[in-house]
Design a protein around this nucleic acid. Structure first.
Lengths: 151, 151
DNA sequence: TATTGTTATACTCTATAACTATA
DNA sequence: TATAGTTATAGAGTATAACAATA
């Protein structure tokens, strides 16, 4: 097994505290976000899949399952629900007839745009309680957290 | 309705991007952490409740439900499971016989200590992929995220 | 009459195992 | 024989509604 270059640091009080704070905050924030659905008919993972598709363009169900860290049967169900809502299209894979290609529709794109405004309104309410320095720290860390999530 | 002092900033590209990255990262990281259980017999919310108790000392089931953003019946079940595992004690409230007081046991404290080591090992694996500057940003933001989560 | 906590019940989301079709 | 996706089924976790005890 290999250890990170700064493994020793993680035993320091500050880093251990940061790790604890991060874990606790992620679990609790995720619970809040679940309730604050931008579209009442879309689950958090469905939203996440649409976000991934918006970044990737297209993907196969298998790729989506790996990226979202869910099992293939779960992704089958999620994609089917999204298709039923007219948010994605399912097409045959051009080179491998076992696979399928998932693409987001215009309706999904419009919904993502609409949802962004609602998310901003919700988060603005929370950010209101932060001072500018605190918000700056979150803003700086956000892309790093996203990188962490997709490792 | 009142608006945050920096509402305008949230419509800027950078802040909107940060908000999107934060939401996506929180949802995906929470899914990872669910799998990476420090104790296989404890759900993420059970862990979170123990963490809250460690900070607060004691709390009533109702207080815990509000802090963890779950409904009272869910907290009833969670507390009962924790009690069955010998991790919390339930005592009558000294002033109000409707309420109960939840306290963590020594066993819970020892388990939290053990779990911290396991968490560090898991997160160290992820942090390995970050450079020092990136990790510094996460470390700075961690306490702010915790504040955000408990608003 | 309002509030705290509980019981009973149903729903949502995800996983595992077994199956089909294609490579 | 291995891989992509699906179907069927079960389990975990949470919510809502109805109820009991106390304020």
């Amino acid at each position: 097994m290999s250890y990170p270059k700064d493994m020793a640091d993680l035993t320091h009080g500050d880093d251990a505290a940061a790790v604890n704070a991060l874990r606790s905050a992620v679990m609790r924030l995720s619970r809040r976000l679940k309730h604050q659905r931008v579209d009442e008919s879309l689950s958090p993972t469905e939203m996440s899949v649409l976000g991934t598709l918006a970044r990737c363009g297209t993907a196969t169900p298998g790729e989506l399952a790996r990226k979202e860290h869910v099992q293939p049967p779960s992704m089958t169900r999620i994609v089917a629900l999204l298709e039923a809502k007219g948010l994605v299209r399912l097409e045959p894979h051009p080179e491998d007839r076992r696979q399928k290609v998932v693409t987001q529709t215009d309706k999904a794109e419009a919904m993502l745009e609409e949802s962004r405004r609602k998310r901003n309104a919700f988060l603005a309410g929370l950010v209101e309680a932060l001072d500018e320095d605190e918000w700056a720290k979150v803003r700086e860390a956000a892309p790093v957290l996203e990188k962490l999530a997709q490792l």
